[in-house]
Amino acid sequence: MSRRRMIYEGKAKILYEGPEPGTLIQYFKDDATAFNAEKKAVLDGKGVLNNRISEFIMQRLAAVGIPNHFIKRLNMREQLIKKVEIIPLEVIVRNVAAGTMSKRLGITEGEALPRAIVEFCYKKDELGDPLVSEEHIAAFGWASPQELDEMISYALRINDFMSGLFAGAGIRLIDFKIEFGRLFEGEMVRTILADEISPDSCRLWDLETNEKLDKDRFRRDMGGVTEAYAEVARRLGIIKESGQVADILDFNNSGK
């Protein structure tokens, strides 16, 4: 990848120019951050697992009619994706009170919400990605009314699909964060799902024990982050046995 021009580096991924116009290569890092990057670490194998999990989910979402930027996985850490103009909003769907919602509204963590709630945050690291309303989005032109409607519709459809997908694997989908982009196709512009879907961007709890299988293990110093991500991959059938986890870590440590 050193011969490729880097387009953007984020907290957990790097984007490089793609082999063809309209494409990018998305590289998954092992870096873990929390609290607006105030807490940082490198977790061996995390990027490899997130690459595989995001590939799996994006493919299945495409199969049920959710357009997204994923084209194909190139190797253990890289995906070929469609180049989009990212809409500067994080779309959060919550099924169960957790994290900032529990603190903000005084709701006990783990309490089921009356219905799925869609929230928006303005993508601005220096401001801490503040929560914003649909009024803010419209007033500042961060997304058009049509784009906003599409993002909400897609977000709820994604929630329905993923809730069932994870429940079938014995996992409760607590909440998740997604991003959307504008895909330019000639004179046409489409709103499509972008970024990633992985335990970095979802809260996932064991259906029976409520054991956390997501990034909260890093946020809360619980340990076993990579092992939890590997458990999610195993339950989804992405990796078969614990031996494949060892292979992932061996690949990671080999420096390839």
Score class of each variant (00 low, 15 high):
residue 162 M to C: 13
residue 130 P to K: 02
residue 149 D to W: 11
residue 144 S to C: 10
residue 161 F to S: 00
residue 138 A to F: 10
residue 124 K to F: 01
residue 168 G to I: 07
residue 77 R to L: 05
residue 99 G to R: 08
residue 137 I to Q: 05
residue 138 A to K: 14
residue 81 I to A: 04
residue 89 L to T: 03
residue 158 I to H: 00
residue 100 T to R: 02
residue 134 E to I: 11
residue 169 A to T: 12
residue 143 A to R: 05
residue 146 Q to S: 14
residue 153 S to V: 12
residue 180 F to T: 08
residue 101 M to P: 06
residue 73 R to C: 06
residue 74 L to D: 07
residue 133 S to Q: 13
residue 120 F to A: 10
residue 79 Q to I: 03
residue 190 R to Q: 14
residue 140 F to T: 12
residue 78 E to V: 03
residue 77 R to P: 00
residue 101 M to L: 15
residue 136 H to Y: 14
residue 154 Y to S: 03
residue 103 K to C: 11
residue 167 A to H: 13
residue 116 A to T: 07
residue 186 G to W: 03
residue 176 F to P: 01
residue 120 F to P: 06
residue 118 V to R: 02
residue 119 E to K: 06
residue 135 E to M: 13
residue 82 K to V: 03
residue 179 E to V: 06
residue 198 S to A: 14
residue 118 V to I: 12
residue 163 S to H: 00
residue 143 A to W: 04
residue 156 L to C: 09
residue 159 N to K: 02
residue 157 R to N: 09
residue 156 L to F: 03
residue 200 D to N: 01
residue 103 K to M: 12
residue 75 N to G: 12
residue 99 G to K: 07
residue 198 S to I: 01
residue 119 E to D: 15
residue 121 C to H: 04
residue 160 D to I: 05
residue 99 G to V: 10
residue 138 A to R: 14
residue 81 I to P: 02
residue 153 S to T: 15
residue 72 K to D: 13
residue 182 R to C: 08
residue 74 L to C: 11
residue 132 V to P: 06
residue 162 M to F: 01
residue 152 I to A: 12
residue 67 P to Y: 02
residue 185 E to L: 12
residue 86 I to M: 14
residue 183 L to N: 07
residue 77 R to Y: 01
residue 111 E to L: 15
residue 124 K to I: 00
residue 178 I to V: 15
residue 120 F to N: 05
residue 195 D to E: 12
residue 93 V to Q: 10
residue 167 A to D: 15
residue 194 A to H: 01
residue 154 Y to N: 02
residue 139 A to I: 11
residue 78 E to I: 02
residue 77 R to D: 01
residue 146 Q to M: 11
residue 188 M to A: 15
residue 144 S to R: 09
residue 145 P to S: 09
residue 115 R to K: 14
residue 181 G to P: 07
residue 198 S to Y: 00
residue 105 L to K: 08
residue 68 N to C: 14
residue 94 R to S: 13
residue 171 I to F: 00
residue 157 R to M: 09
residue 121 C to V: 03
residue 88 P to S: 06
residue 145 P to I: 08
residue 120 F to C: 09
residue 68 N to H: 07
residue 115 R to M: 13
residue 126 E to F: 04
residue 180 F to P: 07
residue 194 A to G: 10
residue 108 T to Y: 04
residue 102 S to V: 06
residue 174 I to N: 08
residue 124 K to P: 01
residue 85 E to R: 12
residue 87 I to Q: 05
residue 198 S to K: 04
residue 119 E to H: 07
residue 116 A to P: 05
residue 127 L to Y: 04
residue 197 I to L: 15
residue 161 F to R: 01
residue 67 P to K: 03
residue 196 E to C: 03
residue 164 G to C: 07
residue 132 V to M: 10
residue 71 I to H: 05
residue 75 N to R: 06
residue 76 M to C: 11
residue 88 P to W: 01
residue 69 H to I: 06
residue 144 S to F: 06
residue 192 I to Q: 13
residue 111 E to W: 07
residue 132 V to C: 12
residue 100 T to D: 03
residue 172 R to K: 15
residue 163 S to F: 00
residue 111 E to P: 04
